[in-house]
Simulated scan of single mutants.
Amino acid sequence: MNPHNITLIAGPPGVGKTAWISQLLQDKTRPMFYLCPGMGEVSVDLARMGYQFPWVSLLSEDQAPRVLANLPDQAQVYLEVGFHLNLETPFFTTLPCHRVAVLPPSLEQSEWHHWADDVIPGNDIGVPDLGQSQQLPELWRSLLTGQVLDPPSLDEILIELTGGAYGQIMRLKGIFELPDGRAFYVDFVEGLSGIEYGDLNLPPWRQGRPNRFSGLEVIGYNLERDIIAKTLLEACLAEDVLAQYQEQYQMLHPQGKDTEEVISP
């Protein structure tokens, strides 16, 4: 393995690791690979990378050893390391790679500084003490594939979540399906202004339940997981309501042309 072909990216939650990697993945001139260790095969970041950069190969952890051992000469691999993973595990310490830490500019010393070959300035956010004496933030995920959410209810849930109604939220990211067939991405970082919404530019799904990944990931403290899950479920459209939305859309747009009109069941 050539260490110049593999880049390991680490840093605190919300600092901008995914955003930094996304800039590099726009290069279509060479084979690109992306792996998010420790998140399994279904995660918001993994799905978002696949949706936004279809030319990038998404690696599972099972595939990684074989692919990394047989990389094409011009290939580039980006491994995004979650805050909850130990950088001293054998896989990370023995992997020939270039180590990059994306860190807040105001953070002058940390374990990431000592670990990294290069430090990249990211979002200037507050960083909790992640040492042994401090409890790590919780990571909670909810798979929503096949679910379509009521937009006003989803807006209310996101405002409540980020406002601390169900625990202290440091980081929230999600992919959600809307009744008009669109899928969009939501991003929130404690300490930065507002909730970011982004269209994923996927083909509209307007017949039956979407058969593509959607879900929510939350990082924080004292998360009321059961209440969050129940509230999310209540915002999901029932079969008959979703069918009404899709039927009305087909009646209003028989040729499948998009407009900004709002359809209500």
Score class of each variant (00 low, 15 high):
Val81Asp: 00
Val189Arg: 05
Cys97Ser: 15
Leu58Phe: 14
Pro265Ser: 09
Pro54Cys: 02
Asn211Glu: 15
Ile9Gly: 03
Asn5Leu: 14
Asn123Ser: 09
Leu130Gly: 02
Leu107Gly: 07
Ala183His: 11
Val218His: 04
Cys236Asp: 03
Lys173His: 01
Leu161Arg: 10
Ile159Glu: 11
Leu130Met: 15
Thr162Met: 11
Pro12Ile: 13
Pro31His: 13
Glu138Val: 01
His253Pro: 01
Gln63Glu: 15
Arg48Cys: 10
Thr259Tyr: 06
Ile120Met: 06
Thr18His: 06
Pro254Met: 05
Ile227Tyr: 03
Leu237Gly: 03
Phe184His: 06
Glu239Trp: 07
Cys36Tyr: 08
Gln147Met: 10
Pro54Thr: 15
Pro265Ala: 09
Val127Asp: 02
Ser193Val: 11
Glu80Lys: 11
Ser22Cys: 06
Leu202His: 08
Lys17Val: 03
Phe33Thr: 00
Ser133Met: 10
Ser60Ile: 05
Pro13Glu: 02
Leu46Gln: 13
Ser214Asp: 01
Val77Ala: 14
Gln76Arg: 15
Ser106Pro: 09
Leu161Pro: 06
Ala243Pro: 06
Tyr185Ala: 08
Phe53Gln: 02
Thr7Ala: 03
Glu41Ala: 10
Gly174Phe: 04
Pro65Cys: 15
Leu35Phe: 09
Arg99Thr: 03
Val67Tyr: 14
Thr7Asp: 00
Val127Trp: 00
Tyr78Pro: 01
Leu144Trp: 07
Gln109Phe: 13
Leu154Tyr: 02
Gln26Leu: 09
His98Leu: 07
Val44Arg: 05
Gly194Ala: 09
Ile159Phe: 09
Ala101Met: 02
Met251Ile: 15
Gln26Pro: 08
Glu160Asn: 11
Val262Gly: 05
Leu24Gln: 15
Gly220Arg: 03
Lys173Cys: 10
Val241Trp: 14
Phe53Asn: 01
Leu87Gly: 04
Leu223His: 05
His253Ala: 11
Gln76Val: 14
Gly181Trp: 07
Phe33Val: 00
Asp117Asn: 10
Tyr51Gln: 12
Met49His: 13
Gln244Met: 13
Leu242Asp: 12
Met39Asn: 08
Lys17Phe: 05
Val102Asn: 04
Leu158Ser: 04
Thr29Pro: 04
Leu71Arg: 07
Phe188Tyr: 14
Asp27His: 12
Val56Glu: 15
Met39Phe: 07
Leu87Lys: 00
Leu25Thr: 04
Phe53Asp: 03
Leu58Cys: 14
Arg206Phe: 08
Glu260Asp: 07
Ile125Gln: 04
Ser57Met: 15
Gly14Leu: 00
Val77Tyr: 10
Ala165Met: 04
Trp205Ser: 10
Asn211Ser: 13
Ala238Val: 14
Tyr34Ala: 15
Asp73Asn: 13
Thr89Asp: 13
Ser214Leu: 09
Glu80Asp: 03
Cys236Thr: 12
Glu261Gln: 07
Arg209Ser: 09
Leu25Trp: 03
Leu87Met: 01
Thr29Val: 09
Gln132Ala: 15
Gln246Asn: 06
Arg225Gln: 09
Cys97Gly: 02
Ala19Ser: 15
Arg171Gly: 00
Phe176Ala: 06
Glu190Cys: 08
Trp112Ala: 01
Asp258Thr: 06
Cys97Met: 02
Tyr166Ile: 02
Phe184Ala: 01
Ile175Gly: 05
Leu233Ser: 14
Gly215Pro: 01
Gly50Ile: 05
Pro152Met: 08
